[in-house]
């Protein structure tokens, strides 16, 4: 886990006078899962959107696979949209609202990128799509349209769609926040499987249990800066700084004992 996939240096993002990110330095290594947590408005999603340039950083540098993205001119970074398209093919993104293409079948959703952008022959693309759909446990729905699927199933297709481009890193933007509670588990299980397979992942989430069990590192954002970061056992269990402690207190105000279940009833992928 030494090779750097993503390196962010001094990232700032402002909307007019409102500065959302105030200088972020973050590195993600190959095979690593990093969870970004923090209150809403802390800049988690904005940070993620800067990484695949759905939002342009105001200042700072982003390196992907060791290569600086954009061109430096007069101390600022300049970005060309055509170059950024190429960058985005190497960065997989999973959205809160799934955003599957409703006019395409599950299979077509997954193959359209590889076929139209990478020029992969359709037969090969379909084979690879099947592989990705199997990974997220939804191969049996390949011929269905998104509207025929539950939210959890749609989100797993969205994950397969991003994986099909064989990205260097996968970004998850609150991937389970729009789901009914009973569907959250299946998506988290699929994500955990990816993490265990060695996928490099940067995950914005409110699922602290997921962060605790899956993340190699947890980063707590507060008002546009990295306030505290470290292994989940430290950040989520023994936070050192006051804002992190407040945040976790709010998330764990109510607790209950673990339900007792027969093994078959447990969620499994």
């Amino acid at each position: 886990m030494t090779e750097e996939v993503l390196r962010i240096e001094g990232l700032r993002k402002a909307y007019g006078l409102l500065e959302v990110l105030k200088g972020i330095d973050l590195t993600v290594h190959r095979g690593e899962t990093v969870c970004l947590i923090g209150a809403s408005g802390s800049g988690k999603s904005t940070l993620l959107r800067c990484v695949n340039f759905l939002g342009y950083p105001t200042e700072g540098r982003i390196y992907l696979e060791g290569r600086l993205i954009g061109r430096e001119s007069g101390g600022k970074m300049a970005y060309r949209e055509s170059k950024l398209c190429a960058v985005r093919t190497h960065v997989g993104m999973v959205f809160q609202q799934f955003n599957l293409f409703p006019h395409l079948t599950v299979e077509e959703n997954v193959t359209i990128g590889p076929i139209k952008i990478r020029g992969v022959p359709p037969a090969v693309a379909h084979e690879k799509a099947a592989e990705q759909l199997r990974r997220v446990g939804i191969l049996d729905k390949a011929k269905d349209y998104p509207s025929q699927l539950s939210g959890g199933q749609q989100q797993r297709v969205a994950i397969a769609r991003a994986l099909a481009m064989e990205p260097s890193i996968m970004l998850f933007d609150e991937a389970t926040s729009a789901l009914d509670p009973e569907l959250v588990g299946e998506v988290l299980v699929a994500m955990r499987k990816l993490a265990e397979d060695g996928t490099t992942m940067l995950v914005v989430t409110h699922e602290l249990g997921f962060a605790y069990n899956v993340a190699h590192r947890v980063v707590f954002l507060h008002e546009g800066t990295i306030y505290e970061e470290g292994p989940p056992q430290e950040i989520l269990v023994r936070p050192r700084r006051p804002r992190t402690q407040d945040f976790l207190r709010g998330h764990t105000a109510f607790r209950m004992p673990e339900p007792e279940m027969t093994p078959a009833a447990a969620v499994d992928g």
């Binding site: 190429a86 959205f95 955003n99 599957l100 990128g113 952008i117 969205a158 991003a162 481009m165």
Partner: peptide, 14 residues
Amino acid sequence: ERGQWEAARAIGFG
């Protein structure tokens, strides 16, 4: 919807 454009952009479509 904006999400459709963004999803297409995120895959790498111009």
